[in-house]
Design a protein around this nucleic acid. Sequence first.
RNA 1: CGGGGAGUGGCGCAGUCUGGUAGCGCACCCGGCUGGGGGCCGGGCGGUCGCAGGUUCAAAUCCUGUCUCCCCGACCA
Length: 569
Amino acid sequence: MTRLSQYLLPTEKEAPADAEAISHKLMVRAGLIRQLGAGMWSWLPAGWRAHQRAVQIIREEMDGIGGQETLLPLLQPAQPWRVSGRYDIDELFKLTDRKGADLVLAMTHEEAVTTHVAQTVRSYRDLPLILYQFQVKERDEPRPRAGVLRTREFVMKDAYSFDRDEEGLAESYQRHVGAYDRIMERSGLRWYRVEADVGIMGGLGAHEYMAPCPAGENEVVLAGGYAANIEIASATAQPVSLPQEMDAPLSVATPGLSTVTDVAAALGVPDGALLKAYPVIVEEESERMVLVMLRGDHRVNEIKLAAALRARSRPARPEEIAQRIGPPGFIGPVGLDGRVEILLDDAVQEGSYVTGANELDTHLQGVRPGRDFPFQRADVRTVCAGDTIAGAQVSIEPAIEVGNIFKLGLRYSQPLGASFLDEHGQQRPIWMGCYGIGPARIAAAAVEQYADEHGISWPRALAPFAVHLVALGKAGTPERQAAEAVYESLLADGVQVLYDDREGNPGEKFADAELLGCPLRLTVGRRSLQSGEIEVQVRRGRQAAAGLPLSAGAGELAGAVDALWRALP
RNA sequence: CGGGGAGUGGCGCAGUCUGGUAGCGCACCCGGCUGGGGGCCGGGCGGUCGCAGGUUCAAAUCCUGUCUCCCCGACCA
């Protein structure tokens, strides 16, 4: 039943007042989704159709690489999570049943799937194996936002690969690269596959699939063929002109000047001629303070810093800084006598810099790394505009992460005991990979990327309906009868058609059609009766296309629509 | 978790400062007109003003507490 007079499509003229993101506003206005609570969203019929179209693309590509679809429970015993070490994650929803047993709501399904594989896979003959599912994930997000872009509950396609060795994992991983590339391509999104952080747990490799759009929470760094999440991106910094060398550091009074910009301005040097000092305390090693030094015009990248330190860290508190180094705002690397390790960012070239003097209202000029302070090197800065990679300027774009693929290695198979016997009767651990993709994010990203001032403009692969048929004129009029016939004909030939058979003015109907954003709009009105043609509008760009014959033979109309359809983006 | 903002009918809002009959636009229902870009006229339905407590003759409005939602940041295995 896809008569709009009977279909639940609650469109709104005005967006919810608190919505910011385009997809949030438009998906609510178009009647696709409704909110029940923070990060809790319902999909209404048309929205769910779009979601399920993404699901079907994913399913086909997963099946194409030999994936086997399963369904694992959302509600799970706590025990495997304790074993895997993930029970203490804040985002994990925990609950207790009536008997007092600890349960969790799964945020992903490594524990469950690995448990089963540990039970059922005994031999190398059972490998490789790819299992996947579409299942709800629950995450107690600190801050859900932007409609369905970041929610506490969402459907994810999660896949897990099981291989006998690292080479096997690499092969499974490559298959997923292929499948994911095809999924993204078929969905019609603009997308990038980028290198991604493997996390503090130390995976063996990871990529993310990013859809660039303004509401994106991530940033991707692009240059030539290079594409990486800004969390791990590296690039060559723009050179900075440094002041003249000095034989030794020279104190200079900088009363009240504690920011890079103020000091640089006062001394007449560029921001990049300063060395910014960023003291951190290494987590679980509270005695260990590291002073990260980087150019004044650069920013610390916490992910890269964690990788360099092989541990998480937190910024040192003012009292810790005062006690171990000097007055906050005026600290520097000179004269610390090994009290604090110094980590110098790779972008700091040889030369003469301005640093804090570890003395109130004072800086040092002519500080030379190596001569004036000892250091270790690491790449710990965030890539910024102006950087280059192999000579090419980087561009930094916001993007939504719609999918990620990750080489887990033995991270779960070892604690959960997933192993097999090889040809020689030797027991070996199973090498695992995990592969996630969010159909809701694919849909929302499509809305973000292609919307215009009139509403959504779906890529044809994701549209809830192929055709939005608008009938003009009152019930019982000849034009309405003609529209009915067109609807019945399309329906009979299997065209996905939404038929606007409501009583209403043309303006409302056209506006709703463009808000919902189906790729083709067909209009049947009085004019059609005169011209003998069904009017066609292509949603993307809103241009009129050649009309279709109103009196077409069986299958003819559907064929013509299909031909039009195939030419669409 | 830090900062900011908001809860009044389905949506968007006014009313709160200065306590005194809960209002507007849209949507919805009924009737009529109109009929190719959210049209017009008339008549209606719908809200214990987030919740609890307090002050008062009287609370959407003042006080206290609490819950919820949004935005920015932190976080995001």
